[in-house]
Amino acid sequence: MKYLKQLLIIITVSLMGELLHEMVPLPIPASIYGIAGMFILLYSGLLKVGQIRETANFLFEIMPVMFIPPAVGLIKSWDVLKTHWLSYLAVTLVSTILVMAVSGLVTQAVIGKGGSENE
């Protein structure tokens, strides 16, 4: 019963997220409503982490696998990309590195001023 109940809770929150996504006319996906909903349940104490822990850990373990099929699907996009692929790739890679560096350095600098939390 443990996994069954845990899965039921997680699926219920996912369903609520999808329903909200359908009803609210904002470009916010179901999973974001779902995270917010799950967070509120945990924070309010209505739900304990222990009530979903094992199933959540299972889902985290297989989560990277869920990105493999869409990534493999990139082999089909070549026709659309082939004329400008180099500039497209440059924009994608350069911005990823810059965003990572800037957001990390800024966060670290602001935390540093408060003077705590290193490692």
């Binding site: 997220g17 999973s31 779902g34 917010a36 799950m38 967070f39 889902l59 297989i62 869920m66 082999i75």
Partner: peptide, 27 residues
């Protein structure tokens, strides 16, 4: 790719539940 993805896409059904669980480490 279609032959591969007709089954593989079912894995993605779990993406929303997995994302929802990201609230756990956050909490």
């Amino acid at each position: 790719y279609e032959t591969y993805n007709q089954g593989a896409r079912h894995i993605n059904v779990l993406l929303t539940p997995a994302t929802v669980c990201l609230a756990v480490p956050l909490y």
